[in-house]
Each structure stands twice: as C-alpha cells, then as structure tokens.
Design a protein around this nucleic acid. Sequence first.
RNA 1: UCCUCAGUAGCUCAGUUGGUCAGAGCACCUGACUGUUAAUCAGGGGGUCCUUGGUUCAAGUCCAAGCUGGGGAGCCA
Length: 462
Amino acid sequence: MKRIKIKELLLSKDFGKEVIVEGWVRTRRGNKNVSFIAINDGSIIHSMQVVVDIAVFGEEALKNITTGACIKVKGILVESQGQGQPVEMQAKEIQLYGTSDPESYPLQKKGHTLEFLRSIAHLRPRTNTFGAVLRIRHNMAFAIHKYFNDKGFYYIHTPIITGSDAEGAGQMFRVSTLDPHNLPKTPEGKIDFSQDFFGKETNLTVSGQLEGELAAMALSEIYTFGPTFRAENSNTPRHLAEFWMIEPEMAFYDLEDNMTLAQDFVQYLVKYALENCKEDLNFLNEMYDKELISRLEFVVNNDFKRLTYTEAVEILMKSGEKFEFPVSWGTDLQSEHERYLVEKHFNKPVILIDYPKEIKAFYMKQNTDGKTVRAMDVLFPKIGEIIGGSQREENLEKLEARINELQIPSKDMWWYLETRKFGTAPHSGFGLGFERLILFVTGMANIRDVIPFPRTPKNAEF
RNA sequence: UCCUCAGUAGCUCAGUUGGUCAGAGCACCUGACUGUUAAUCAGGGGGUCCUUGGUUCAAGUCCAAGCUGGGGAGCCA
C-alpha cells in the first residue's frame, strides 16, 4: 500500500478506508486514554490529526513520538469528531522512522522569531511559515515558465561564469583555481591570470542580460531565469549576494511594449498565486500581514501608473513633503522619494521612464533630447524597485560613443557590439528580482526569509 | 560601508543608582485529567549573563575594542 499525501487526504471523503501517511510530528497531546498526533508531510500547510487509542498501543509505544520525529501511520480515515479539521485518522499501526530528542530539537510548538529560524535554516522548512513560503516560491517559479512558454518565449541558459565585467554592476565574485597562497605573477608583478583555469580573469555573473540580448537577436523573444551574484557589501532586508533573476529580452519591442509586458507578467504571477496558493496565503495573511491578500488583489486589478522621471521630479518638488534628501532633476531618486510616489501620491505600483542618462547603464536607448534614456523602473509598495529595464540602444555608433564616453573597457565586449553590426534590431528587456517578487507575494519583510539558504555578507552557513 | 539598537536558560525577555541579581513566561521532563486543537493543572531539572581587555573592595550592570544579529541609509534586483 502506498502512502497518500495529506493534501489529498484532507479533501477525501473515503471514510472507513485504510490509508497510509508519512511525515513529521508537529505536536502530540492528549491524556491517559487517547493521544492526538499532528503529522505534516509538507504537501499542504495543514497537518493530519492521528488519533491513537492508548489502550491498544500502550504508553511505551508512544514515548518516542515527539515533536520533530518522523513516522509512518497506517489507519482508518474517519470524519473528525473534534473541531479544527474535517478528517482524521484512527491509527492501526505506527512505524517510527526517526526519533527526535525533545530536549535538543530546536523547534517548538510555539512561534519562533524569524531571526532565530534563520540560524536553523536546515530545520526551518518544517515550520508552517517556511512551508508556505517555499510552496509559494515553487509556484511562482513554475508560473514564470508557464507564462513565458504560453507566450512563445524561449528559456535561455546564460553562463554563470563570465569573463567580462561588461555591465559594471558592482563587485563580482572571482572564480579561480589558482592557489591563493602561491599566485603566479607576471614580470610586472601582477597576478598572471593566463595560468588560471580559463586563461583569463573570470567571475560569477551579475546579469544574463548581455547574453540574453544575443539570443533575442535570433529567437525574438527569450527569457533567462537563473542565479545571479553580487559581491556588494549590502546589508539590507532587500539584498542577497546570491539571488535569482528573471530577464526577458524581446526583439521588436519598444519601451511601451516593454512596460506592457512587465505589468502583464507581474499581474499574471500575482493572480496565479491568489488562485493556486490560497491556503498558504491565508496563513501568511493571518500571521504576518493582515493586508496581504487585499494588496495582491489590488495589484492584479489596477493598471500601474506610468510617468516620466521628469514628471516624477516635478510631483516630488511640488509635494510639500519634507524629504531627508532634496529632490532635483539629474540625481537618482532616493528610497523615500520612491515610497512617496508609490505609497502616498499614486497609491499603486508606478513605472518610471526616461531617466537622465548619467544615472543609467550604457546600453540604454538614448532619447532625442540628448539628456535621457529609455529606462524603466517598476516600483512596488513596501519593497521598492522590483523591476529594472529599458529599451536597448540598437545603433552601433551611438552605443560605441556612449561606451567611449563612460570609458568602459570594450575589448571584452566585441561580441555584444556585433549584434549592432549584423542585423541590428530595436529591442527591449527587463530584470525581475525573483526574491523581491516572493517578498511581495508572501508579505515577508526580509529577503532572507524567502530563499531557503540565504547568502549574505558574513553568512554562507548551510 | 555609514548611522542606530540589541546580545542574560532551548526560545522570548526582565534584571532599577555598580552591592543575595542568576529571574519570569513558554518549551522540556514527571505526575494528574475519558476527544485534544499553541490543551489545561501541579511539580522538577536547566546558565561561558556574546568575546577579550580595562575601571573598581565589588561588574549581567560602567568604559574600550571586536564578533554576531535587527532596523535605517547607500548600491541595486
């Protein structure tokens, strides 16, 4: 007889049927005559209540069935006599797979702080909160592939090890097989990377965008979805050193098309969560954020406000709001400015476009005003920037001029520039931080609580 | 990296002007209870007061440095 997942059994009406469940004990309680075991197998947030007649099993047999233990139960599925669950199991046989010393098992029946759970990341998937977050995370990953597949986008695997620092997006993690205690040196005394594994200096990727553009110049509409690494010493609830990013890149899309896709994409994902993760969202709504579900519904049902950077600066200057940092055209907007626009002025997600070229990356399409570029940032309540993207500069001369202006070493970028040389095309794309999406969908406050094993400065445990 | 707050039992925390200050709740263990729902009730065990150094007759308490964590900022996704 095969086990049946608790998710399935809780919906079952096969009362009187003999079934098997396997899972981990959440709690056991009761008295001299009867014992109740809550067993959870992670298939759903709810546990199965197993009712044990102590006269049949004996107290000794139940002694090791403690919180955290793993057991197999064969029993009869019955309608629950108690409140709180529709069905329960009357135990006939119990097999103990693994004990769990209650003295040292760190998870209790009572709630723990998220900070403490981070220190036991190997066990926190066994909590209701992380079970919910991890199931939602899975559903969002699946929905991302489904969305793009249904739209005819192709999934491209861009390299994780890169030989170019093209984007210049902050500090990178070096990839090397050189012996750090005995580094080969060039005659000039510098490290001789020609002797390294790849014969050159290599790093972990900070973005798959440039390679994504290459694929879009052949397959029209593509997306990447992979790990991304930033060695920035960022200590905030919104940054990780290792995170996952989705980067669609589309030939023949202008910035308007790009914005339309970004909004449709995010709304699809949030709607997917509302429809497919109802039980987990209800739990998070109840325990962490009473406005979570209404906020998700609002995002699904309302267009994002689109406006230019210049318009945003005017709104901020006229707002009368006292900002810590003054607003002026040409400087990047501060968190407080973005929050004002999203949470106070428009009270909905905002897409800002046409930023000053000085504060944006070299590859963004230059506007005819000579001052701004076709950039877009999608700003969300509570988490700020969730998407950053742009229409790309497809004109070779303009792109090269910008590269020279910024003194970007273009030696390693010949292949990128050749897309503008051979059959260039208008195209656009954006990057969505996967964990930031999960933050928004789950209502969690810290990005370290939406990835199973967070990598942050001074922390690579587990 | 900067600003700021914190670190005392397995967890969450209290600990006053430096002088019975080693404490509480929960968890755990034992017992009671005829169906529990974070069960309830009674009892019990449990400590590197983050680390190092300093001030003092005396430091959980004051000072310095460091480590770790939270919040805010910057960088960004």
